[in-house]
């Protein structure tokens, strides 16, 4: 009897801790793994200007801004991590930061 099994499962669930959490209202941290691909962290001091990241970014989120500086547009970014992978100096890292909420589209642009 499948229904019997479902009933038993539901009845025991009633008294167990729920699988969901009250995010973001409850101050419970959502843990993401170390390999998570979140917001981009770029260290301009390490950059040698090889432009490989610009060439391989699938969404065109990485551009060359004025004064030959690399600029990232996190609104265009698809967080694939290809830039971090091709960077010969490891100047680009993808952090564990995933709560990327900005009030304007302009503030997604980072240098």
């Amino acid at each position: 009897m499948g229904i019997g099994k479902i009933m038993k499962d539901a009845a025991t669930r009633l008294f167990r801790k729920p699988s969901t959490i009250g995010y973001p209202l409850k101050p419970e941290r959502v843990e993401v793994p170390d390999s998570y691909r979140g917001a981009i962290d770029f260290d301009p001091k390490l950059c040698v200007g090889c432009m490989l990241c610009v060439r391989f970014c699938p969404s065109g989120a990485i551009t060359v801004a004025d004064k030959r500086r690399i600029a990232f547009d996190l609104a265009r970014c698809i967080y694939c991590g290809q830039c971090a992978e091709v960077c010969p100096r490891k100047a680009i890292k993808l952090t564990k930061e995933f709560e990327l909420i900005y009030e304007s589209i302009e503030s997604f642009k980072q240098q």
């Binding site: 539901a10 669930r13 167990r16 729920p18 969901t20 959490i21 009250g22």
Partner: peptide, 11 residues
């Protein structure tokens, strides 16, 4: 609430 808890949700 009860429905949610039976399904393992906070509700």
């Amino acid at each position: 609430k009860v429905r949610a808890r039976m399904q393992g949700r906070v509700g």
